[in-house]
Nucleic acid binder design. Structure first.
Length: 261
DNA sequence: AAGGGTGACAACCGCCGCGCT
DNA sequence: CAGCGCGGCGGTTGTCACCCT
């Protein structure tokens, strides 16, 4: 047989927590720690289920919570992470000590989504929505024709301009890639969607059947690698004109182009 | 002043993977 | 091996405060 039921739902309280309940839960956890959420409400004298206690503690009572508004820098980071991780809020939250997945999710749904829409960016795909896309393409000197069989936009690029852009982007990537475990960019259980070789010019190959949309295997591991990298931080701190944000924007442009090519 | 609309955020619901029995 | 609960997660809803008409 399995375990004991999590909680007897009959007679349990729902809805907003009272100060008294908060006090009981906090006192209990501070004094006893958390061994098993199922036992917490019983031992703390609360008429709540363990799940509810867990949620209340994690999202509201935890002493290490960082409360208050999100800074612009945090918002930018959320957008970048969302572009790579999709709606995996817990993964995104893990990059923000003191912030909860619920908090980030709420902030995304109430503010960032609207902000992106105002900027003409689809918050789901992180690509320009139709009209803005055309403007973006024009500004990049790109001619787009639609492949009727695949229904995928085929991009004909102004080659000198592309070469210039590619060199610029490649140089950013080279810096980033030198600090990465290249193998971590590929999913070991699936086909390699993208490969990057550490050559002088840092070359790329890219599987166009795989979009750079949320949930792709690219990105998650690489971001983790990037986070704790001192030399990369040094590069950022050096105040080089190519900021981190700029670098990512360049990547997104590259992915936008290559993903449609 | 009243009521409708909107934003922000807390909390719940349902699902899933994992591990226990 | 199957059944089941736990913990975790993402989607959704509920509630409250504020603003506008």
């Amino acid at each position: 047989m399995g375990r004991q039921p999590c909680c007897d739902r009959v007679g349990l309280k729902k809805g907003p927590w009272t100060m008294e309940e908060d006090r009981k839960l906090t006192t209990f956890i501070v004094n006893n720690g958390i061994q098993c959420w199922r036992m917490v409400p019983k031992l703390a004298g609360l008429l709540r289920c363990g799940k509810s206690c867990r949620l209340r503690w994690i999202n509201y009572l935890r002493p290490d919570l960082k409360r208050g508004m999100f800074s612009d820098v945090e918002e930018d980071q959320i957008i970048e992470l969302h572009a790579r991780l999709g709606n995996r809020w817990s993964k995104i939250a893990s990059h923000f000590p003191g912030r909860t997945d619920n908090e980030i999710k709420n902030h995304w749904n109430t503010r960032i989504k609207k902000k992106l829409k105002l900027l003409g960016v689809d918050p789901i795909t992180h690509t320009y929505i139709e009209e803005d896309k055309k403007q973006h393409e024009q500004s990049c000197n790109i001619n787009v024709t639609t492949n009727e069989t695949t229904n995928i936009d085929r991009v004909k690029i102004d080659e000198p301009r592309l070469e210039n852009d590619m060199n610029s982007i490649t140089s950013h990537y080279e810096i980033v890639c030198k600090n990465l475990d290249i193998d971590s960019l590929t999913d070991t259980n699936q086909e390699k969607h993208m490969s990057i070789s550490k050559s002088d010019s840092c070359s790329f190959s890219f599987d166009p059947s795989v979009s750079i949309n949320p949930g792709s295997s690219l990105g998650e591991s690489s971001i983790v690698e990037l986070e704790g990298d001192n030399s990369l931080q040094q590069w950022i701190d050096d105040g080089v004109d190519h900021s981190w944000e700029y670098c990512f924007n360049q990547q997104e442009d590259l992915f936008f182009l290559l993903g449609n090519y």
